[in-house]
Amino acid sequence: MVSTETSRLRAVLFDRDGTLVVDVPYNGNPDLVRPMPGAKAVLDALRSEGIATGVVSNQSGIARGMITADDVARVNARVEELLGPFDVWEVCPHAEQDGCLCRKPAPGMVHSACRKLGITESGAALIGDIGADVKAAEAAGAAGVLVPTPVTLAAEVAEAPLVAQDLAGAVRLLQEGR
C-alpha cells in the first residue's frame, strides 16, 4: 500500500516548448517567447497550493551549434519574467545521438529535479506535449500527462496513460488521481 505522503503531488514539472510557451524551434531570442494559453494561471494556482514547479527541457540546438547555452538561459529568464519563478530548471544540451542520460525520454532530468526539490519521483509529475515527455516521467517513476499540440503524433496520444486538452485539465487529472 502506498502511503498518502509518498503519493501526494508535491511538484509539477513542465516541458518548456509547446507546453509552457509557444514552440519556436531552436529559439535563442527572448523576444519570441509567448506563453501558452492558461499557463500563468495554472502555475500561479500550483504555487498558491504550495506545489513546487519546474521545467525540464531538451535543448539539442546547443549541441548542434544553432543556439548557445547563454541564449537558452536568456530565453528561460524571459519565461520566468512572463510566468513567474520556477523552483527548478533542468536543461539537456545534448543531441539525440549523444546517448546522454538526461535527454527525454531518458529520466535523468526528472531524477535531478526531484533530488534538487528534495522529493521522491512518486510525488512528482511531468506535463508535456510529446511522447518523450510522458516516457521520461514513466521511466523516472513520476506521473506523466500529455497535452497534445499539432506536432503531437497520434501514436503518442494513443500510448499516453493520461491526456488532457490543456494545462489546467492536466493538473486536474493529476490532482484527481492522487
Rank of each mutant, 00 (worst) to 15 (best):
M1V: 13
T6I: 15
S7R: 15
S7T: 15
R8C: 08
L9S: 06
R10Y: 00
A11E: 07
A11T: 11
L13W: 08
D17K: 10
D17Y: 11
D17C: 07
G18M: 08
T19Y: 11
T19R: 12
P25S: 13
G28T: 10
G28W: 05
G28Q: 04
P30Q: 12
R34M: 08
P37K: 12
P37S: 13
A41I: 00
A41M: 01
V42M: 14
D44H: 06
S48F: 01
A52W: 03
T53M: 06
T53G: 06
G54K: 12
V56L: 14
V56N: 00
S57T: 15
Q59L: 05
Q59E: 01
G61N: 04
G61L: 05
I62H: 00
I67A: 04
D70P: 00
D71F: 04
V72W: 03
A73T: 14
R74D: 09
V75R: 13
V75S: 13
V75H: 11
N76F: 11
A77F: 02
V79M: 14
V79Q: 09
L82K: 13
L82I: 12
L83Q: 08
W89K: 09
C92A: 15
E96S: 12
Q97K: 00
D98R: 02
G99Q: 07
C100W: 03
R103V: 04
R103H: 09
A106P: 00
P107W: 10
P107D: 06
P107G: 09
G108L: 11
A113N: 05
C114A: 15
K116W: 00
L117H: 09
L117K: 09
L117Q: 05
T120K: 09
E121V: 15
E121Q: 15
S122I: 00
A125F: 06
A125W: 03
L126H: 04
L126S: 04
I127S: 05
D129W: 05
A132Y: 01
A136H: 06
A136G: 07
E138N: 00
A139M: 02
A140V: 09
A143Y: 03
G144H: 11
L146V: 09
V147H: 09
V147G: 03
V151E: 08
T152F: 06
L153E: 13
L153F: 08
L153Y: 03
A154K: 13
E156T: 10
E159H: 04
L162A: 14
V163E: 02
A164M: 10
A164D: 03
Q165L: 10
V171M: 09
V171L: 06
R172A: 15
L173G: 02
Q175A: 12
Q175F: 02
E176V: 13
E176A: 15
R178M: 03
R178E: 10
